[in-house]
Design a protein around this nucleic acid. Sequence first.
RNA 1: GUGAGUGUAGCUCAAUGGUAGAGCACUGGUCUGUGGCUCCAGUGGUUGAGGGUUCGAUUCCCUUCAUUCACCCCA
Length: 419
Amino acid sequence: MSKIKALKGFKDLIPGESEHWEVVADMVRDTFKAFGFSPIRTPILERTTLFTRSIGETTDIVEKEMYTFDDWDKKPVTLRPEGTASVVRAFLEHRHLMPLLPVKLYYQGPMFRHERPQAGRLRQFHQVGAEILGDIDPKQDIELLSLLTHFFDRIGLQDLTLEINSLGCTVCRPPYRKALQQYFKTSLENLCKDCNRRFHHNPLRILDCKKETCKTITKNAPSSSAHLCEACELHFKSVRQGLDDLKIPYQHTKHLVRGLDYYTKTAFEMTTQNLGAQNAVAAGGRYDGLVEALGGPSTPAIGFALGMERLMQLLPEQPHLASNLKLFIAPLGENAYQKLFPILYALRKKNCRSEIGHPGAALKKQMKTADRLQAEYVLIAGDQELSAQKLVLRNMSTKKQTEIGFSNLLDTLFSEIFK
RNA sequence: GUGAGUGUAGCUCAAUGGUAGAGCACUGGUCUGUGGCUCCAGUGGUUGAGGGUUCGAUUCCCUUCAUUCACCCCA
């Protein structure tokens, strides 16, 4: 056994599983394009400041989870911990090429966070994301949520809940934050250690605590929706109305909070009870201030990210895909191999999935290999066949064998195996 | 970063203070050039690593590493 193993929290996707990922990836492309999104691929490595400025200096991700190191020019670079910052950076860098607002983009790819691995959480994990840049209208929120809902529908996942909330904006969030601190101030000693920490740097998070004692205290805490400014209130109302109009079920979760600093107004999560301690398969929200914060023109935007590992974990157990091998060629001896290898090449050029056995192996062994590869047909070529100028074609499920002459070999073969 | 659980054959797991066993997989035979099924046989382990207690440790203790789950946080 090799001593070098994959890093902790990094995982190989091998046949048996990798095929299913491709199926889902294809479905992503298909669905997201239907909703008018275009693919974008951004680099995995970015300047560190892109993330510190967008995600927030004091978030856990930036403080202790990023893979950051000095590039050869001594400037710090980081393996992306999420996708939105890169997309916004690319949007700003190529704005002249994407003049039509709103710009609708989607991506899929690996993200990196140095966390302790756990069910539904890896250090390299994969996200599918979608972003709509350049429109503050709640219509965009609805469009994005309808895509998310439809995608899960189409992939066949049930038992998912769309939870939404509004976090307010720069106008109404600060007063709400104060109101929360005011409320919790009196019961600080009854709140857990973590919540005491949250009290200072992110009091909204207290609402999300899992501890029972904290939960009872948060029960009567002021809700964000009661503190929304007029614009945010109206926006949130339109979003909910829009979802109702499309008959998309959702739940208004008053304590729903987002971890990244850049979120404003609409915030949402697609949650499930079947993921162990994790419950979010997808999450996102509006980030109306981010583009400007990264040095661009004021550009409201909204997006979501979906965790592939979590999605795959929720999908019902998939049977290992059959290899769909059409033909296995069993050459007995070097002569046969040399005669048949060009035939194999010709078959493959015609997109016929085919394999050839090892000429030194006994026929029995080659048959076994063919069986394991789930070949539909086996073409047998030994000395007898070569001297008789006729090959034997065996149908593996019916066990019927037919002889095929050397003249027009390829054509005959094709008409036999594709009839 | 914190806490708990688990490390025995390629895989899934037994067992015992006296140097380990099953099923599956693999190889071969049954079946001389024809796969799946049956039956039979065989290969395969310094019981994660290091140290300690003991006449003796795979079992008990300590350390370490790996892994899993949970907390924090997040998709």
